[in-house]
Design a protein around this nucleic acid. Structure first.
Length: 278
DNA sequence: CGAGGTACCTGACAGC
DNA sequence: TGCTGTCAGGTACCTC
């Protein structure tokens, strides 16, 4: 389930492989997945850069005949989406929804595969991510200086929802999903169902630090793989080995030794240590 | 408007 | 064996 560290790993794995390649043909096997409201052609574009915003991957493209004509392919992987780079043509499976045929020194293919088909790809004008409601509503990047403790404090103090909901809803801070949410709350020693406005300044400071820490560590370990997530070359992540609570219910807490619990909070499976977190 | 619930999807798995 | 039910979860959308 690609969250910020997974999307960042996809970005860094794909960038050196597809930058400057030309999209010479696009095949769409499932219409719902690719959103192209202007019905613009999906060939004749050169990939100029890969960026990321929250859990969105932004593929900047320029026209091959007019370098001033720019556009954007924006990808959200949701649960099971994958973007796979291949230098050999393979038969599309029932989960292959969009295929970009690329050309540089040699032919290559970039396949969007998605078992549950929740993910989407948008073809937008250059800079069009900011008009997309999903991206426009995103809070600051957790590793940027724009995400200040003061900003986080203000958002948290205004909400009576469980702190887990605040972390997941993308407006206080962008890119946190269920895994890194549970891990950050464990590290900050805060129970996931605590009302946000009940957190002390010290706890908010701990949580701010914990979010940055788990996101950084997640990126450092190339993301977390349980079943689906792989990078642009099909490689798994390693952060699952570092997890303290996520999917460890019934196992022992690595800090205090008591059993990790699992409940439903904010409609999500939620893992926590009942002794370390208060 | 904030908060909570549900639809979207398919595969894995438990239980009978 | 094969069926049914439940769970997984990011986001849009709906309702209160």
């Amino acid at each position: 389930m690609p969250e910020l560290p997974e999307v960042e790993t996809i970005r860094t794995s794909l960038l050196p492989l597809i930058k400057d390649l030309e999209i010479i043909k696009t095949e769409v096997f499932h219409e719902d997945v690719l959103i192209n409201k202007d019905q613009r052609p999906l060939q004749g574009w050169i990939i100029s850069d890969l960026r990321r915003r929250g859990k969105y991957l932004l593929i900047d493209i320029v026209s091959s005949d007019n370098p001033e004509a720019e556009a954007l392919l924006m990808v959200h992987f949701r649960m099971t989406g994958k973007l796979l780079f291949r230098t050999e043509l393979v038969s599309p499976t029932k989960h292959t929804h969009v295929r970009f045929h690329l050309h540089g020194d040699q032919d290559a293919w970039l396949d969007y595969e998605d078992v549950r088909r929740f993910g989407r790809i948008w073809l937008l004008p250059a800079g069009g991510e900011n008009e997309n409601p999903g991206v426009a509503g995103l809070g600051p990047e957790p590793l940027s200086e724009a995400w200040t403790l003061e900003d986080f404090q203000n958002k948290i103090k205004k909400s009576k929802a469980p702190i887990k909901s605040v972390l997941l809803n993308q407006t206080a801070v962008a890119g946190i999903g269920n895994i890194y949410c549970d891990e950050a709350l464990f590290r900050a020693k805060i129970l996931p169902d605590r009302k946000a406005d009940s957190l002390s300044e010290k706890e908010i400071r701990q949580l701010h630090e914990a979010v940055r820490y788990v996101i950084k560590e997640g990126i450092g370990h190339h993301g977390t793989t349980f079943s689906d997530y792989v990078d642009g070359l099909g490689r798994q992540g390693h952060f699952q080995q570092q997890l303290q609570v996520y999917r460890r219910s019934g196992e022992k807490c690595k800090i205090c030794g008591c059993d990790i619990c699992k409940d439903k909070v904010a409609g999500r499976g939620t893992h926590y240590c009942p002794k370390c977190q208060i």
